[in-house]
Amino acid sequence: MRASNMTGEKVITADKLTKRFGDFVAVDQISFEVEKGEIFGFLGANGAGKTTAMRMLCGLSLPTSGKATVAGFDVYKDNEKIKKRIGYMSQKFSLYEDLTVKENMRFYGGIYGMSDAFIKQKTAFILHHLHLENEGNKLVKSLPLGWKQKLAFSVAIFHEPGIVFLDEPTGGVDPVTRREFWNMIYQASEIGITIFVTTHYMDEAEYCNRVSIMVDGRIEALDSPSNLKKQYNALSMDEVFLQLARKATRIES
């Protein structure tokens, strides 16, 4: 499946991007490009180097060698500019439980330097969109888990970033909410936000436009789910993943 709004404009480029910790090569010369509006699945077994790669792209960790740009900015020189232009949602729930829904939005909007008028308008829009109009003044900790996760995604794209990085956003979430969450991902992609997502659910890999699979620090496969299944003669992405991940020789450490 191809997002209708994909324009060919590259919003992430990585060229032989590498990160070493001493003798250990966590990320080994990975090269790829992600288009604007694309839903890009970033898969790999535990310890394959996903988190390290993602931290470099988010401007949180300097590469050892290689090149990369995110939203047109260089990950070495302009990492502060990158941080302003991306959204990030970690696998651990990251809103403030002791603040209300609205306070969380004001806080994150403020951090990203949004104006009061923007924050007010955007908050109303999100609450309406999530059918949470009556919950705006409730503490986040009082909300059911499924709502929290959807809210966390809305907050991650509150400042309308060009790219959002989602690190296992659906872990432990019930199957209905998991699908509602993916509907939100599609909607964000439709308005041109690029989605860079990691997941352990292989059915979710099918929902991505393209998927990369990391093994031992390298990208071993990168294509659309249907092409990968053809290439590996597999019926599902689960089979593709197992074929590749079983090749790993690196001892997790």
């Binding site: 790999g44 077994a45 432990g172 352990h200 292989m202 689960d238 991940a245 790993a248």
Partner: peptide, 10 residues
């Protein structure tokens, strides 16, 4: 098996 990849889960 929460947060564990597909291979380790198997």
């Amino acid at each position: 098996t929460t947060g564990v990849d597909a291979v380790s889960r198997k």
